[in-house]
Write a protein that binds this DNA or RNA. Sequence first.
DNA 1: AAATTAGTCAACCATTTGGGTGAATAATTT
DNA 2: AAATTATTCACCCAAATGGTTGACTAATTT
Lengths: 125, 125
Amino acid sequence: MDEEDLSRILKAAGDTTRRRILTLLVQEGALRVTALAAHFEMSLNSVSKHIKVLEEAGLVTRRTVGREHFIAPELAPLRLTEQWFGQLKSIWELRLSALEELLVTGDQDDERTGTDDKPQDRGPA
Amino acid sequence: MDEEDLSRILKAAGDTTRRRILTLLVQEGALRVTALAAHFEMSLNSVSKHIKVLEEAGLVTRRTVGREHFIAPELAPLRLTEQWFGQLKSIWELRLSALEELLVTGDQDDERTGTDDKPQDRGPA
DNA sequence: AAATTAGTCAACCATTTGGGTGAATAATTT
DNA sequence: AAATTATTCACCCAAATGGTTGACTAATTT
């Protein structure tokens, strides 16, 4: 289920602390858990948990060296969200151009007959 | 705080049902609450609540006509998420090019001295 | 005026979430 | 071998989430 992935990514990115972590990683490169935690007011454990969430969403990867865990940013998954948005946009634009054409040609064939569950299209706000 | 807005938007988009609602609206145009709910297996009330969440995130607007509420999609806020992502990407690329330059010029000035809290940069995975 | 229809509000419930603490594990340092 | 350091794991807790049902309001229809 690709939907699941997308949900996980968006949920992970939906938290301010996690976004800050990602930003830190992107600007400083791989960081240890403790180094990351130093930037926040919350406990090391909480940061560790946030990292886990990011990891499960694929937004971060972990390279363990001895007792140290290096966390690196992974921007690729965010492309999935861009994709979703892009898809939405193109459907929307397609629909708009279809409507426009309807207006131009004055095509009567698509007139709703009233038995339809869908309401007449009152057009975009 | 703009961060709050971004969180609200990402959280709203992080739910599968809500994304499906958005998609429906984008492809069919404004729909009534009941018409929307017809597409889901959950109760009308639940859908109503999801719509409220989307509304609070600005991803949807409501036009009330008599007892009917028409819900329309609003894609603009999603641009904010794109912006955030874009920012992240550019910081990342900037950093990569800076590292590359370091390698090329072999600049010794940036050598870490050991008292630094930050670990040596082991480079991206 | 009565009944129906469209939708929200309020309360309830189970689960998830974001935080905290203390103990456990594993690698280093002394 | 003992102490320290880096991190996770296992619970605890309050608040938020996603769903339900039942009552309520308001607009239509009959």
